[in-house]
Design a protein around this nucleic acid. Structure first.
Length: 761
DNA sequence: GGGGCCACTTAGAACTGCAAAT
DNA sequence: ATTTGCAGTTCTAAGTGGCCCC
């Protein structure tokens, strides 16, 4: 029955006729986009007639997407022109204070001579999590800091290092040379091979040359540019740097640290706090992720004049670099940034902010998890409701319900709209026709690029009603390029969520489900085995969460080889084991009859495998002795002692030759040489040991493979309530440092110190 | 009610330094 | 002692979501 009923609204729209069973227009109204006429309470959207509206939506997309694709070629004019909107500070200062009224006068600061010997004071005694933290519209009372570190001035390359154009060296003005150098340094990276990157770089490079008044030659063909001299020069520099003696390195580091010291911390309400990114980002080529239309563009040097500082009214303003002025000095205590500037790529804002271990970050982290925990009191109702709403007669509600389902079950992100000069990535609300493939009865294949252009690919079974709805959302006239969810966007969704719980938004679901999953997984871990074994299981739980959130990483370049290595090692162990078993049979033939199972694997390796293993061992042995010989002689040379005679090496290698012969023989006869004094018992012992090693190596290999594409850190840092890990460690007696690095322990200090072992998410 | 701006969290890549392997 | 692999850290891009303005 439901099928036709379900589809009512749309069928009405699409077919403009018949099949409509029910007049839904009334309820329909609110978001208004669809039904005809009669729209009591909503005026604005109401003029759309349903058909028209559909067409409109489609048209909108069609217009938009192709644009995106076209835009790639023709580019960026608008971007570079983007007018800098100077947010008049007066306006700003006006707007903010309005919410200030709530200022809590309690503010836990003691303000006791904080400036003095606060050296050690950095918050050690201050446990903000034991205080109330309801209102956070005001972030601080006093704020002092020392500004930011600018990257060093450009140092021109030595005169013999040049860009070659058409084979001939070019004298570039320093600025242009710097830009060429950015590319030169990246010559061997994937970026430099990306045509968009090249095009954008070259365009900006030409522009810079022009800005500098030219360089004698006209640089008009990227293909004729040869950056290898520059690349080699930087490579050389890198090597040089590596070769500096340890002592020298240490000294350099110490100097750097001393210089940076003042910038690393600031005073927040008189307490010392770490600053996160106190360095202004250096100029370079923009490394956009995925197919970013602007990748490769020049990210320009930030001047002090571009930088706005934010600090307390009474704080001393750090002096700007010699000969410069700050762009502005602000005293806005409703925000938590210390400095900001605007970057030239997308005209967006970059902030200098507190470090992750700061109280402000900690508090909002804590609130985030508390908010997610709150969701557990509502989730049942929410789920029940959206299951019902999946069948709503209102297209709007169906879309809301379906999107909520996807967000809840598959942990999709909200999916806000993106502009044409960003990579084409999507989340839930921005899913398009082509991202979802439906296979009856209820299989859905998702295939799209999400945040950071990470692919989301999953073939899953969904609720039958969800399947129907998706089918409905894909119905004609929609086609590739059209939004699946044409009635909703994250703000609609979030408004709906707020009706259940204040502060509930799409992203809370991700946090909730991640932490909930972690808890469920941890609950399954028995309290047995060594801490190391428990950590392995903890990591497996962590991995479940990472997979849920689709946190990926690119497989490291050494991965394949290193897997191969492990697998070779395993094979060799297997060979060893078989060999030992053969020896057992040589000692006692009857054993095979007694324990057939035990000897079943005797033929598991082919002759080729065995020969290969022999060869590897021989090679390894030879190398071992040669190295040993060399090392010994080097040592003797240093001590001015006599060298070992060549004959010594010969003797060693002779042993290997003998081994090689033995192996050859063994391969032929299938019988290894029996070591002296060997017994069945000894052999059994060795086999047992070997089996242990094989088991652990196999596990290790599996773990490694499973982990090669999954990033555990992102969920650990952002989604899994740290108190879960703390409780786990406490209860199961696992040292916390096995699961949290030092930085993480600092970041999660609030969790570590506030929780007892009965705590539940 | 939608666009733009702002402030903040979340994200994988790149880099670094250290420990295990050789 | 040197190399290598990797965990941990740093960097900065790319999201989310609130708020204001029209």
């Amino acid at each position: 029955m439901s099928d036709s009923e379900d589809d009512v609204v749309l069928s009405k729209r699409v077919k403009t006729n018949g099949s409509v069973k029910k007049e839904s227009s009334d309820d329909d109204v609110p978001l208004g986009q669809l039904s005809q006429g009669s729209r009591p309470h909503e005026s604005s959207a109401s003029e759309y007639d349903s058909d028209e509206n559909i067409t409109k939506t489609a048209a909108k997309k069609i217009k938009k997407k192709p644009n995106k694709r076209k835009a790639e070629g023709k580019t960026s004019e608008p971007a570079s022109k983007k007018v800098k909107k100077q947010p008049s500070q007066s306006a700003k200062t006006k707007t903010k204070p309005k919410k200030e009224k709530k200022v809590k006068e309690e503010t836990p600061i003691k303000a006791e001579t904080p400036g003095k010997d606060d050296e050690e004071d950095d918050g050690v005694g201050y446990k903000w999590w034991e205080n109330q933290l309801d209102d956070d519209s005001v972030k601080w009372e006093t704020l002092e800091h020392n500004g930011v570190i600018f990257p060093p001035e450009y140092e021109p390359l030595p005169s013999h290092v040049k860009l070659l154009y058409d084979g001939k060296p070019v004298d570039l003005p320093p600025f242009a040379e710097e830009v060429a150098g950015f590319f030169g340094a990246m010559l061997e990276t994937d970026h430099a091979k990306n045509p968009t990157f090249q095009r954008n770089f070259f365009h900006d490079f030409q522009k810079v040359i022009e800005e500098c008044g030219g360089c004698g030659v006209e640089i008009k063909d990227f293909e004729k540019c040869d950056f290898t001299q520059m690349f080699n020069y930087f490579e050389g520099k890198r090597l040089e740097k590596k070769l500096i003696s340890a002592a020298e390195k240490k000294k350099i580091k110490a100097e750097k640290d001393a210089f940076e010291e003042p910038y690393k911390t600031c005073l927040l309400n008189g307490r010392k706090e770490q600053v996160g990114n106190f360095r202004i980002e250096p100029p370079g080529l923009f490394r956009g992720r995925g197919a970013h239309p602007k990748t490769g563009k020049l990210k320009r040097r930030v001047q002090p004049e571009d930088v706005i500082l934010n600090l307390g009214k009474d704080a001393k303003v750090p002096p700007p670099p010699e000969g410069h002025e700050w762009g502005e000095v602000r005293h806005d205590n409703t925000v938590s940034w210390l400095a900001m500037w605007r970057e030239n790529i997308s005209n967006s804002v970059k902030y200098v902010r507190f470090a992750a271990n700061s109280s402000l970050k900690g508090m909002s982290d804590y609130k985030k998890f508390e908010k997610a925990r709150e969701l557990k009191n509502h989730i049942e109702k929410i789920r029940k409701d959206y299951r019902t709403m999946l069948k709503s007669n209102l297209m709007l509600e169906r879309q809301i319900a379906t999107a909520t389902y996807l967000i809840d079950v598959f942990a999709l992100r909200a999916g806000g709209e993106k502009s044409d000069d960003e990579a084409d990535t999507v989340g839930c609300c921005s899913l398009r026709f082509e991202h979802v493939t439906l296979t009856p009865p209820q299989t859905v294949a998702f295939d799209f690029l999400g945040k950071d252009s990470i692919r989301f690919y999953q073939e899953v079974e969904v609720d039958p009603q969800v399947f129907k709805n998706l089918k409905l959302f894909k119905r004609l006239p929609k086609g590739p390029g059209d939004d699946l969810f044409d009635r909703i966007d994250p703000s609609v969704l979030n408004k709906h969520f707020q009706t259940y719980m204040t502060g509930l938004t799409a992203k809370v679901f991700r946090t909730y489900n991640a932490s909930k999953t972690m808890q469920d997984q941890l609950d399954l871990i028995p309290n047995e085995g060594t801490p190391a074994e428990k950590v392995v299981k903890y990591n497996a739980a962590n991995r479940t969460v990472a997979i849920l959130c689709n946190h990926q990483r690119s497989v490291s370049k050494g991965h394949e080889t290193s897997m191969q290595k492990i697998s070779d090692r395993l094979k060799e162990m297997l060979w060893q084991k078989i060999r030992l078993k053969k020896m057992m049979l040589m000692l006692d033939k009857k054993l095979e009859k007694k324990k057939p199972k035990f000897f079943e694997e005797l033929d598991d390796l082919t002759k080729e495998d065995e020969a290969h293993i022999h060869k590897q061992i021989i090679i390894r042995e030879r190398e071992k002795y040669e190295k040993k010989f060399k090392r010994e002689n080097d040592k003797r040379a240093e001590n001015k002692e006599d060298q070992l005679p060549e004959s010594q090496l010969k003797e060693w290698l002779g042993k290997v030759d003998q081994l090689e012969k033995d192996y050859k023989n063994e391969l032929k006869t299938g019988k290894p040489l029996l070591p002296d004094n060997i017994t069945i018992e000894k052999l059994e012992q060795q086999i047992e040991k070997l089996e242990g090693r094989i088991a652990s190596t196999t596990l290790q290999m599996k773990d490694k493979e499973d982990n090669s594409q999954v990033a555990l850190s992102t969920s650990k840092i952002n989604y899994i309530d740290p108190r879960l890990s703390v409780v786990f460690c406490k209860k199961w007696n696992v040292p916390l440092e096995k699961v949290f690095t030092k930085t993480l322990r600092e970041k999660f200090k609030w969790a570590i110190e506030s929780v007892d072992e009965n705590w539940r998410f």
